[in-house]
Deep mutational scan, measured.
Amino acid sequence: MASQGTKRSYEQMETDGERQNATEIRASVGKMIDGIGRFYIQMCTELKLSDYEGRLIQNSLTIERMVLSAFDERRNKYLEEHPSAGKDPKKTGGPIYKRVDRKWMRELVLYDKEEIRRIWRQANNGDDATAGLTHMMIWHSNLNDTTYQRTRALVRTGMDPRMCSLMQGSTLPRRSGAAGAAVKGVGTMVMELIRMIKRGINDRNFWRGENGRKTRSAYERMCNILKGKFQTAAQRAMMDQVRESRNPGNAEIEDLIFLARSALILRGSVAHKSCLPACVYGPAVASGYDFEKEGYSLVGIDPFKLLQNSQVYSLIRPNENPAHKSQLVWMACNSAAFEDLRVLSFIRGTKVSPRGKLSTRGVQIASNENMDAMESSTLELRSRYWAIRTRSGGNTNQQRASAGQISVQPAFSVQRNLPFDKPTIMAAFTGNTEGRTSDMRAEIIRMMEGAKPEEMSFQGRGVFELSDERAANPIVPSFDMSNEGSYFFGDNAEEYDN
């Protein structure tokens, strides 16, 4: 993207840094990872977990959730003011799984939030270390993106479920800051804005008074975040219109849905970061690795190297396929839920299948599930090659597409044709070009129609051997075009429920 120079890199967003050079960025990201790792080690000690239990991804998720809940100030305040039966607002906890007599047992633990905050700050040299908290939120978000298709949420806001490739980060909490905003897809931002506008339509006082002023500035800020994701002048001009509207209503909703559809071809720039579970960072720190000293990046080879040398386990339900569970977590670790499966298959070195073909449910185990038949197995999170994460949407291309997802959002900077089903997408653009945004709409449609099938995206960008740390010898991959490109292809993934 041309304006790259004016933006802070995501590592800076990730670490609240002012302008830093590459070495400083690597050190501050490393410091953040160190903090998460030290916190995780301490929690495993508190909970008396064995090494194996500490490497269980379900335990990692519970521990991450506990610290996120302990620092969720708004919710904590709300819980104190609106006490609900049987919930102690000062405590947080969740299921911890232990191996007892050759069987997995679930144990519900409860801790004072104050105590968890103390352990977290102690692991982070006394700081609140917001960057580390956001990092864990993005890992949870990436896992949700890989596990669930947001059909219901899309339909509720009037969008087409086939636009799911635009929904990265749709389950990120509001408090995820600049680093969170960077990884949100165009569809996620559109959905947040539509929800806001709908509230304004239904509630006369939404934009009024002292609160209304705050609401208005939040609305304009979200519009600017979305505008910054678009790469064409016409899309940005249309966002200006939406932002400046005196009284946002149905016309703005129409414009936003139009823009979301246009992003299936004229893709937005959305950041991709490899955020790993805390149970990967903990053992690495415990083994003596100093992330701050060595430096770390979320968008280069580092996460690949770390996963190459990590042992992570997962509980497996009786009829689940461990290899499929591994694929789910591998995609989440690489922030690749909406990437082209052919690119992923090449990088991973084994075939990556669409969601609907995987015999696996989510990673988390519900409290009512029976533990008797639970097994555990090693997650295979290694890769054959590594590639640089991208934040450009890439230019655009036609490809055989599917009944489910009709476009992709690249996660890796790797040369390819970008699949999208042009006739299906263009069919949504018939007729409606009147109104105050008509010239911009016409211009956007013209650009979409001009998108050429034979153009290559990320020209000359390749993948790298894991021994090639400096990215000196790019390998331009070859793809098996007979395979499906979309992950949520004609899909039956479970729906995400809060």
Rank of each mutant, 00 (worst) to 15 (best):
A2F: 01
S3F: 15
Q4F: 15
T6N: 01
E11L: 04
Q12L: 12
T15G: 01
T15I: 15
T15L: 15
E18M: 00
N21W: 03
A22V: 15
T23V: 06
E24P: 04
E24G: 00
R26Y: 09
R26G: 03
R26A: 13
A27M: 14
S28L: 04
V29M: 11
M32T: 10
M32D: 04
I33Y: 03
I33M: 15
G35Q: 02
G35I: 08
R38C: 09
R38W: 13
R38Q: 13
Y40W: 09
Y40T: 08
Q42P: 12
Q42E: 11
M43E: 08
M43V: 08
S50H: 12
S50A: 15
D51C: 08
D51F: 00
R55D: 10
R55S: 06
R55I: 09
L56W: 02
I57K: 07
I57E: 06
S60I: 14
E64Q: 01
M66D: 11
M66C: 13
V67Q: 10
S69G: 14
F71E: 05
D72V: 08
K77H: 14
L79T: 04
L79Y: 10
E81G: 11
P83Q: 15
P83Y: 02
A85Q: 14
A85G: 13
G86L: 13
P89G: 12
K90H: 13
K91R: 15
K91L: 01
T92D: 06
Y97C: 12
R99C: 11
V100P: 14
V100G: 10
D101G: 08
R102F: 14
K103S: 10
K103D: 03
V109H: 06
L110M: 06
L110W: 08
E115I: 09
E115G: 04
E115K: 10
I116G: 07
R117Q: 15
R117D: 03
I119H: 08
W120T: 02
Q122I: 15
N124R: 04
N125G: 11
N125T: 11
D128G: 05
D128Q: 05
T130K: 15
T130P: 08
T130N: 08
A131I: 02
T134R: 02
M137N: 01
S141Q: 03
N142S: 13
N142F: 12
L143S: 13
L143C: 14
L143P: 11
N144W: 09
T146W: 02
Y148C: 05
Y148Q: 05
Y148T: 11
R150S: 11
T151Q: 09
R152H: 12
A153V: 09
T157I: 15
T157E: 00
M159L: 15
P161H: 00
R162H: 06
R162D: 04
M167C: 10
M167Q: 09
M167I: 11
M167Y: 06
Q168D: 04
G169C: 06
S170C: 07
S170P: 05
P173R: 06
R174K: 07
R174W: 09
R175V: 05
A178K: 10
G180A: 10
V186A: 03
V186R: 03
V186N: 10
V186L: 13
G187S: 13
V190N: 08
L193W: 07
R195H: 05
I197M: 13
K198Y: 08
R199D: 02
G200L: 08
I201D: 06
D203V: 04
F206N: 11
W207E: 08
W207L: 09
R208K: 15
E210K: 09
N211F: 10
R213A: 04
K214H: 14
T215N: 12
T215F: 04
S217Q: 14
Y219K: 04
E220A: 09
E220N: 02
R221I: 09
R221Y: 07
R221P: 07
M222R: 00
M222Y: 14
I225T: 08
T232F: 03
A233C: 00
A234W: 08
Q235G: 09
Q235C: 15
R236H: 04
A237C: 14
M238S: 13
M238G: 09
M238T: 04
M239T: 07
M239F: 00
Q241Y: 02
V242A: 08
R243E: 07
R243S: 04
E244S: 07
E244A: 09
R246T: 10
R246C: 12
R246E: 04
R246K: 06
N247E: 06
P248A: 15
G249H: 09
A251M: 08
E252W: 11
I253Q: 14
I253S: 04
L256E: 08
L256D: 00
I257N: 04
I257K: 02
F258C: 13
L259S: 11
A260M: 12
R261S: 06
R261M: 12
S262K: 01
A263I: 01
A263Y: 01
L266Q: 10
G268R: 00
G268N: 13
G268K: 01
S269H: 11
S269E: 03
V270N: 14
V270M: 05
A271H: 03
H272G: 10
K273N: 12
S274N: 13
C275W: 03
C275R: 05
C275T: 14
P277W: 04
P277C: 08
A278K: 08
V280R: 07
Y281S: 02
A284R: 15
V285D: 02
A286G: 13
G288H: 08
F291S: 14
F291H: 13
E292R: 11
K293C: 01
E294W: 01
S297F: 08
S297Y: 04
I301R: 15
D302T: 03
P303Q: 07
P303N: 04
L306K: 05
L307M: 11
L307E: 11
Q308E: 01
Q308K: 00
N309Y: 03
S310G: 13
Q311M: 00
Q311C: 01
Y313N: 04
Y313A: 13
L315D: 07
P318L: 12
N319Q: 13
E320I: 03
H324W: 07
K325F: 08
S326V: 05
Q327G: 03
Q327R: 02
L328T: 06
M331S: 09
A332Q: 08
C333D: 00
C333A: 14
N334A: 06
S335K: 02
D340E: 10
L341Q: 03
V343C: 12
V343S: 13
V343T: 11
S345V: 05
F346Y: 03
I347Y: 05
I347V: 09
R348G: 06
R348C: 06
K351V: 07
V352N: 05
V352M: 10
P354G: 08
P354Y: 13
K357C: 09
L358Q: 04
T360Q: 05
T360H: 09
R361M: 04
R361F: 04
G362T: 08
G362N: 09
I365G: 08
I365Y: 02
A366D: 09
S367M: 08
N368D: 01
N368T: 14
E369I: 10
N370I: 05
A373V: 11
L379F: 11
L379A: 02
E380D: 12
R382P: 03
S383W: 02
S383F: 01
R384S: 11
Y385K: 02
T390Y: 00
S392W: 09
N395F: 08
Q398V: 05
Q398E: 00
A403R: 12
A403M: 00
Q405W: 11
S407F: 02
Q409L: 00
Q409V: 13
F412Q: 04
S413G: 07
Q415G: 11
R416H: 13
R416Q: 12
N417H: 11
F420W: 03
F420T: 15
F420L: 10
D421K: 00
P423L: 01
P423F: 00
P423T: 13
T424L: 15
T424E: 12
I425A: 15
M426I: 15
M426A: 07
A427C: 14
F429E: 02
F429K: 00
F429S: 02
T430S: 15
G431Q: 13
G431D: 02
N432R: 06
T433W: 01
T433H: 08
D439E: 04
M440R: 06
M440S: 10
A442R: 01
A442L: 13
A442F: 00
E443C: 01
E443I: 04
M447H: 14
M448F: 00
A451F: 11
A451D: 11
K452R: 14
M456D: 01
M456H: 04
R461E: 12
V463A: 12
F464Y: 00
L466C: 05
L466E: 00
S467Y: 04
S467Q: 06
D468C: 15
N473E: 00
I475G: 07
V476L: 07
V476K: 00
P477F: 00
P477W: 02
F479V: 03
F479E: 00
S482I: 05
N483Q: 08
E484K: 14
F488G: 06
F489E: 02
N492M: 10
N492P: 03
E494H: 09
E495D: 14
Y496Q: 00
Y496A: 13
D497S: 14
